[in-house]
Design a protein around this nucleic acid. Structure first.
Lengths: 145, 145
DNA sequence: GTGCAACCTCAAGTTAAGTTGAGGTCAAGC
DNA sequence: GCTTGACCTCAACTTAACTTGAGGTTGCAC
């Protein structure tokens, strides 16, 4: 038995992603469909999951390049197993947790800045000796880096 | 007594923002310096705070247009008071809290998808009847909207 | 009163993530 | 066997947020 193939239009319908975007993802190396004799793309059913992953990762603020890195961890040749996906998902979880931590830190910083009236962070920096602030010259650029 | 003015280069140094970016912000309406007889920009010291606010807001994922909306709430003519800044900062806090909630929701969703092996979210949607999923056609597009 | 760093404008380039359009081909139903 | 919707490529456009470069001017220090 061989894998079942779907057209780009079907993939678009199943994922909610525009056909043009799917072609673009292929161009970027995130998808790699085979071609029919007539040069039309044929995707694997598993690519639905792949695209879904792309969408979720985008929601988390990852760029397509980073997403490609994640996807590169999937095995080539065979269809990814549940375990393969779980491995990637766990990595993502770590990234989300970091993002949440970052936001929490920013919120706290903002709170402090409300308190001291110092939006330029010049004074607030005193509260943040643990951060790497000040290493890269002045300014709040360093706040969330 | 009149306000003390600083040049664009000084503002750049104090905020860590490139001179070209500051000119760009002016073009976008986020800054509004006066001009010398020789057509050079002169900023208020308070603009340091203004730029700092822009940077923080950007870190939170706001676009310049949204940031401009926030800044528009500041009084024109007189220098913003601490209370003015605090009002805006409180609004921002709400936005950060929302963002954190959103990320938490996504993380939970990812956890569930790891559990059921369903990255396409077709099944996971069952866990999310409370969300507005399904209203806009299939696909994970709706996850974080 | 001159040198020169810092300033000015305006146009064009950059990256990300796509979309839109022109012009042409494929494939499935009747 | 033909029609027609779905597909193809390639180039150009879009938005955000800037940067870079060319060519010219200002203003402060000596």
């Amino acid at each position: 038995m061989h894998a079942s193939f779907i057209t780009i239009g079907q993939l678009a319908k199943r994922t909610g992603v525009a056909v043009s975007a799917l072609r673009f993802y292929e161009e970027k190396g995130l998808l790699d469909p085979i071609r029919t004799g007539g040069n039309q793309r044929r995707f694997l059913r598993g690519d639905i999951r792949r695209v879904s992953f792309i969408l979720i990762a985008q929601k988390l603020g990852l760029g397509l390049a980073e997403i490609e890195d994640h996807l590169a961890a999937l095995p080539q040749g065979r269809n990814p197993t549940l375990a393969d996906w779980q491995k990637i998902s766990r990595q993502m979880r770590v990234q989300i947790d970091e993002k949440i931590k970052l936001l929490n830190r920013t919120r706290n910083q903002l709170d402090q800045c409300i308190g001291c009236g110092c939006l330029s962070l010049e004074k607030c920096r005193l509260y943040n000796k643990d951060d790497k602030l000040g290493l890269k010259g002045p300014g709040p650029r360093a706040v969330l880096d």
